[in-house]
Each structure stands twice: as C-alpha cells, then as structure tokens.
C-alpha cells in the first residue's frame, strides 16, 4: 500500500515520542523497584544484626573486646555470619561491614541497656540513578545478653 507524502515520517515521529515516554517509565520503574528491593534486604539484614547484637555476650576487659564485638555484629549484618569466609559475598550488593554502625546505650550502672544498629551510609546503584541511605534503616533492641565486663573476646 502506498502512503501519501505528508504521512511519511509520521510513524517515525510517533515511535520516537512514545518510545521516549515508555523508556522513561520503564527506567523509573526499574530504578524504584530495584531500590525498594535493596532497601528491603537492608531492613532484613539490620534487623537480624540487631537481634544478634541484643543477645550477644558483652565483654569489655579491654577496648579491643568492644571493637571485636562491633566487628562481629557488622559482619552479621553484612554477611549473615560473624566470621565470614574469605571472599564471602555480602547479603546486600556492595554492602561493607564499615557501612554498618553499632552503638550500645549504657544505663546508670554502666551495663548496656540498648543496642542500636543502623546503616551509616549506603548508596544503591540503580543503573539510571543513585539513591543514598544515611542512618537508615535503623533498629534499636534491648540488650538481653550476658553482661561479662571482665571477660575477653575469644
């Protein structure tokens, strides 16, 4: 079928206009969908790390014991394991233990009452854009573990 001269190119222009809208919608959908997926993984990881931190024995015979405990909790959030094997993959893409913040809140007697676990600074690379999370997700658990200030971390 022959088209008239003034019809030629219409289809191309229509395709270009609709493709721009469609690609924009799909890119946005992927960007938000993937970011939500990663954030959900972070919520789970931080929740599990917080629960572990709440039940873990608190040893503090030296400052290095607290740092060891902090490292174990950070590894639990990042890898799902306090002592990950070399080359272990993180639970959330590109999450590093250093990006996990762990703080104990002490009561008047110097015993831990609460433990806060949060993601200090993490960026989601969603191909078409970056989303940055600072201080979230965060959890606060009561400390219900054993308090052993005179013991050392193994």
């Amino acid at each position: 079928m022959m088209r008239r001269a003034n019809q030629r190119g219409h289809a191309l222009i229509e395709l270009a206009a609709s493709a721009a809208v469609m690609v924009g919608c799909l890119a946005g959908t992927f960007q938000f969908g993937y970011t939500f997926y990663v954030y959900n993984q972070l919520v789970t990881a931080v929740g599990n790390g917080g629960r572990y931190a709440a039940m873990r024995t608190y040893r503090a015979s030296a400052p290095s014991d607290i740092e060891k405990a902090r490292a174990a909790i950070r590894n639990m959030v990042a890898y799902g394991d306090t002592r990950p094997a070399p080359g272990a993959l993180p639970q959330v893409a590109n999450l590093k233990p250093e990006q996990v913040q762990v703080e104990w809140v002490m009561d008047e007697s110097g015993k831990p009452a609460l433990v806060n676990v949060s993601i200090a600074d993490y960026s989601v690379d969603a191909a078409f854009g970056m989303f940055r999370f600072t201080g979230k997700p965060a959890v606060e658990y009561p400390f219900v573990g054993r308090f052993a200030p005179s013991e050392s971390e193994p």
Binding site: G33, F36, Y39, G47, G50, R51, A54, P137, V139
Partner: peptide, 20 residues
C-alpha cells in the same frame, strides 16, 4: 514494582519493629 515494593518494605519494617 512501586506499590508492591513499598508494601513489602512496610511489612518487613513492621515485623522488625514488633520483634524488637
């Protein structure tokens, strides 16, 4: 992608909160 993603996140956040 958007609504279901937010629903799953809210569900997870609520569960972590009630656990704590």
């Amino acid at each position: 992608a958007f609504d279901l993603g937010r629903i799953y996140i809210a569900r997870n956040e609520a569960q972590v909160f009630t656990d704590a």
